[in-house]
Design a protein around this nucleic acid. Sequence first.
DNA 1: TCGAAATATTCTCATATCGGAATATATTGT
DNA 2: ACAATATATTCCGATATGAGAATATTTCGA
Lengths: 117, 117
Amino acid sequence: MPRSPTTLDAFSAVGEPRRRDILDLLARGERSVTDVVQALKLTQPQASKHLGVLRKVGLVRVRGAGQQRLYSLNADGLRPIHDWVKTFERLWGERLDRLDQYLQQLQTQEKPNGGSE
Amino acid sequence: MPRSPTTLDAFSAVGEPRRRDILDLLARGERSVTDVVQALKLTQPQASKHLGVLRKVGLVRVRGAGQQRLYSLNADGLRPIHDWVKTFERLWGERLDRLDQYLQQLQTQEKPNGGSE
DNA sequence: TCGAAATATTCTCATATCGGAATATATTGT
DNA sequence: ACAATATATTCCGATATGAGAATATTTCGA
């Protein structure tokens, strides 16, 4: 089994800095491809391709307006990422009271080794 | 300029499903490489390599214990991701009152086109 | 229908990535 | 020093990726 594609889910799509830039831009409103090109200094094909990936994984939506294609953010697609990262939130001590901290320590030390004897 | 490596920051590192699995596991406590291998059914080199990437980007820490290497989560490394995704939180209507929603709509419509005429 | 503008697709290239196997490097105990 | 265990590194192959250039497609206007 050689390799698995890295452009099929939101997680991997967002791994690409350019695509994050695009999402940041779209977070401020709908944009045409040309807008993206100019705002982020990309070539037109690059913009189209990145937008295509983002669309495929459901992070953006398209709407045809004349000969333009207006892309907008589909923030829902980011929820899985948010939810996953949130799982670790308690582990970096966001707003941690003493008891939580203590319970956490217990968990961290839960399995110091594979010692079966 | 051909391509940029995708294994240098937390974002891209986390794009790989196996690595997310590893982080999920480490979230429950320190683990040796062998532990990871067994828990996630990876080959030993694969585990080492993925752990190596995670370490390089600062998502895990290592501690030598005898001939074992105990890896633990460094949750702080996930904060950038969390913070970034959080930026979009309001856009999927987590807990949105009417005023926010209205302001948001204005923003979304901010730049419907490049129309200068 | 023809041309122009906007966008998408295709092609090629260099490279990075993952997986697997084999091997190298600790580290401990005897 | 030697064997055994644990882990890291290297080598190889297949493939996906992103970039760039060229081209195709769509859409509108005259």
